[in-house]
Amino acid sequence: MTTTQTQAAAQLPIENPGEAYKRRKTTRGNFELYSWVFMRASGVVLLVLIFVHLFVNLVAGEGITAIDFGFVAGKWASPFWQVIDLVMLWLAMLHGTNGMRTIVNDYAERDGLRMWLKIALYTAFVVVTVLGTLVIFTFDPCPADAPANLLPSFCTA
């Protein structure tokens, strides 16, 4: 039997090879359980809501050409579409934020980075959800000082 040996180039070092293992204190509770169930339930509801939304906005009636300030205002004049869009907004934001939270937990290795990414994530969640909710309930298709060429035709009437 013959053998040869070659020295290969050194690669990246193993991170902290001799470091002692530290298991943090237990973090028991039902939060992750409810979050897991919520992701599945909201996913199913969102699937229905989003395709209804796409169909009503882009396909039904005059289709995509009908979309303008007036179309949106018309929809939100009805409490039914206000509730539908509100539910869709909140479910989508909670579902997406929770998904991003688990991705941050899975991929960010350092606690500091994890914390800052989550602060950024939750800030984005609050800003978008509050603004979105506000718009759904206070949408005005004819803002007072907007240029006339950007407004729908019925505003001047």
Binding site: T2, T4, L12
Partner: peptide
């Protein structure tokens, strides 16, 4: 440093 070594 970890390193690679080849044996045949």
């Amino acid at each position: 440093e970890a390193y690679w070594q080849e044996f045949t």
